[in-house]
């Protein structure tokens, strides 16, 4: 399968629609972990992808990007096949599987977000250097610019990868659990950054685990458990019934009640 196997079939789509996924099925070995998922992510929306561990959330993002091959399905990004629109996407993986002893400073990692802009031979200009520092400031990491990346805590590393995504200056941000392992103050800072991106007319899709903050942070949700359970505005889709369908017995009724959601049919 080609690395862009996910884009094998091109669908005509509205160029104003940041991301549409159709009939996406992904399997590791013989076991489908994402099955026939359709989803649309409208412009300037902030969507949470929600589901239990192993529901295929990360896999859906990776297959969308063509990082893992999909068995079937098509993806269109701003009406184009993904191969033509990659420069408009930034991706922050769940837990970057990188070698932490790699000889790179924090600012070098963020600079990787500029590689496309730089091309093969371009040099980092003064203006771009300022951009890099600005990206680090937005995630409160400017003080660490010169540190070797291995000398950071897990939450700090997470923020460096977010800064790298900011440096990509994309229109569509795909984030895999950006809040995992960060403290409350940092979570606040990150959500402010994301809301800032949204205000700049960008689109955000984020895997999210903390059900209690979904209504505060996101205006749309995609509930996923191998299949798509539901998709739509948070107010109408993030309901007790849908959560029960997504999590099954894993989520006690009291936990759902604690969220204070409208009950289906209520």
């Amino acid at each position: 399968m080609t690395p862009d196997g996910s884009a094998a079939k091109v669908v005509e789509e509205d160029p104003g629609l940041p991301l549409a996924v159709r009939g996406m099925t992904v399997a590791y070995g013989e076991k489908p972990v994402v099955f026939s998922v359709d989803a649309r992510f409208p412009a300037q929306s902030m969507t949470a992808i929600i589901g239990p561990n192993g529901a295929g959330k990360s896999t859906l993002l990776k297959a969308t990007l063509g990082v893992v091959p999909s068995l079937s399905g098509s993806v269109s990004v701003y009406g184009q096949p993904i191969a033509k629109a990659r420069h408009r996407i930034a991706y922050v993986p769940q837990r970057a599987s990188v070698d932490w002893d790699f000889p790179a400073r924090v600012v070098d990692v963020v600079a990787m977000g500029l590689y496309r802009e730089l091309g093969l031979l371009g040099m980092v200009s003064r203006k771009q250097r300022a951009t890099l520092m600005h990206c680090l400031e937005r995630v409160n990491m400017a003080d660490f610019a010169g540190r070797q990346i291995g000398q950071l805590s897990g939450g700090q590393q997470q923020r460096v990868f977010l800064a790298r995504a900011l440096a990509q200056n994309a229109d569509l941000y795909l984030l895999d659990e950006p809040f995992a392992g960060v403290d409350a103050a940092t979570e606040r800072a990150i959500i402010d950054v994301l809301k800032g991106l949204k205000a700049e007319r960008r689109t955000i899709v984020s895997v999210h685990h903390d059900l209690s903050t979904v209504t505060d942070y996101f205006d749309r949700v995609l509930l996923l458990n191998i299949r798509k359970i539901a998709e739509g505005p948070t107010a109408t889709t993030f309901t007790a019934a849908n959560l029960q369908a997504t999590y099954g017995g894993r989520l006690a009724a009291t936990q759902i009640n604690d969220l204070g959601l409208a009950h289906a049919g209520a």
């Binding site: 990082v67 990659r86 420069h87 991706y91 993986p93 970057a96 790699f102 990787m112 496309r116």
Partner: peptide, 24 residues
């Protein structure tokens, strides 16, 4: 010299490289 950036990226973070459209 020509390939230093792609090779750095792939060595450091192949998943990000693939997502950014580099053919790892």
């Amino acid at each position: 010299v020509l390939l230093r950036r792609p090779m750095t990226l792939v060595s450091f973070d192949p998943e990000f490289a693939a997502a950014a459209g580099y053919d790892v």
